[in-house]
Amino acid sequence: MAVLAAHNLRKFYGGAEVVAGVSFGIQAGECFGLLGPNGAGKTTTLRLCLGLTDPDGGSVELMKRPVPGEARPARARVGVVPQMDNLDPDFTVSENLLVYGRYFGLSERAIRARIPQLLDFAGLTARAASQIQTLSGGMKRRLTLARALINDPDLIFMDEPTTGLDPQARHLIWERLKQLLAGGKTIVLTTHFMEEAERLCARLAIMDRGRFITEGSPRELILRHIEPHVIEAHGDGVMDWTDHEARKLASRLEKSGDTVFCYAADPTPLLASLANRGELRYLHRPANLEDVFLKLTGRELRD
């Protein structure tokens, strides 16, 4: 069953087409990842799906309801973890959950009954009465996640849920998201952490300049777009080695700063060549999603 379907979505800002004809469907119970560099149109796509802005073309169906026309009842079944924490600083941790539940029309009694399990899920039971300002970044994120679950949603949108978190906090969020998926929730996730997408998403799309440029499981994308072996080499003389040897041995080369990325189906000749170059340092690893991402969206900086 599709819980979200977008058909040929378009959105213009000024003269620029920020979302340029995007179509996708999300099935109940899956975790769909939307990857892309900054400014690719990920957040705008989410806003269109939630009915927070009107599309200039195309259509959205969220929880079987047309959006933006019936966005309100559709949003009643949806939870959102926004990119920026927007917890209410006037309230304590548990008051934030209580007030937010009221926005869904839930009774105070029903919310109060639900708060302990949400606090437990977020690991914030001991901080129930704390002011928001006293929470760490990781705690705020977990509370924002718990807040998004106040209405027991079927579908949860997460806009870069772990941006700005330390590794411990990030792993905890991942673990919680897996728990939600195991419980049958559907998750739509935007991120630019490839590891996050690889770990969590069964299916993902890479978005750039308003378009989906590829779509599939992490494994499929790696097989489809990239050679299976990567050798990263750096050190004095690496450019000399690149020009005289690596260029002939690798099927594809990329330079980034003083590191050379060599992509190859068979790494043996490259490794043999490197063995004769003691001054070079190198790392041989299997290709991953980040290699796909960088190949498809380029290495230049985005703002």
Binding site: N86, Y103, R147
Partner: peptide, 9 residues
């Protein structure tokens, strides 16, 4: 923004 993610316009 937070409120508008709930069923409130």
């Amino acid at each position: 923004d937070a409120i508008m993610n709930a069923p409130i316009d």
